[in-house]
């Protein structure tokens, strides 16, 4: 088990957002957290990255990571593409990518990974010396994924990669994500409002409603079960 979360409670100040979540992310493959706006998806990812205070237990590769600093958690191999993509707007595309590999010292490995990212996202290579703030939304999402991948993570947390993007670009990005998973054996925990999109690449899914799981199971089963989809996911 790569990530184990046990009875996770979280709050922003006074308002409680998470009410005891239990879930796991297995080694390799895609796990998705589905749910409407405000269900607690983003909060869950923030809790894993140590960006908010939580109660409960979070184990990464068997090791408790709760209470650790965000940067230390990243150094363990958890990359996080936050909501809004977290682009360093004022820096160039190249500098954004260099920051992705901040925790690493293997220059050769970084160079290989960088070349691989340019294969997957050729547009980033074209815009290497451009200010990242001038990229389109889709390009920024690609940059964010590439930046996260340069950490060479064991677990990649993705917060709504489809948000605000045109369907065509979303499809492109998800297709590339699928390829990354297949060839790297990476584990991904992706949070999405767009359930059909996420279920298409996911192995396992959890459905979140106001801070509680109301359903979980193999992604394929949920995809096939029309009543489940209709009643919970609305498509």
């Amino acid at each position: 088990m790569l990530l184990e979360v046990k009875s996770l409670h979280g709050a922003y100040g006074e308002s409680k957002v998470l009410h005891g979540l239990d879930f796991v992310v297995e080694e390799g493959g895609v796990t998705t957290l589905l749910g409407a706006n405000g269900a607690g998806k983003t909060t869950t990812l923030r809790a894993i990255s140590g960006m908010i205070r939580t109660q409960g237990e979070i184990l990464f590769a068997g090791r408790p990571i709760q209470g650790m600093a965000t940067e230390a958690i990243a150094a363990l191999g958890i990359a996080h593409v936050p909501d809004g993509r977290g682009t360093f707007m004022e820096l160039t595309v190249e500098e954004n990518l260099r920051l992705g590999s901040y925790t690493r010292n293997d220059k050769a490995g970084v160079a290989t990974d960088l070349a691989r990212m340019f294969d997957l996202f050729p547009r980033l290579n074209e815009r290497l010396h451009q200010q990242a703030g001038t990229l389109s939304g889709g390009e920024q999402q690609m940059l964010a994924i590439a930046r996260a991948m340069l950490l060479r993570p064991k677990l990649l947390l993705l917060d709504e990669p489809s948000f605000g993007l045109a369907p065509l670009i979303v499809r492109e990005i998800f297709e590339i994500l699928g390829r990354i998973v297949k060839e790297s054996g990476l584990s991904i925990l992706v949070v999405e409002q767009n359930a059909s999109l996420a279920l298409a690449i996911a192995d396992r899914a959890y459905l979140l409603e106001t801070g509680r799981f109301v359903m979980s199971g193999a992604a394929e089963d949920i995809r096939k079960d029309e009543t489940l989809r209709r009643s919970y996911l609305g498509y």
């Binding site: 996080h80 936050p82 977290g86």
Partner: peptide, 24 residues
């Protein structure tokens, strides 16, 4: 330098910096 870049990043965007492992 890498450190210089990390310092700039921390100044511009502390949240993202922490997520890539920069001790802000």
């Amino acid at each position: 330098t890498k450190l210089g870049l990390a310092m700039r990043a921390a100044a511009y965007n502390p949240v993202s910096s922490r997520l890539v492992g920069v001790p802000v």
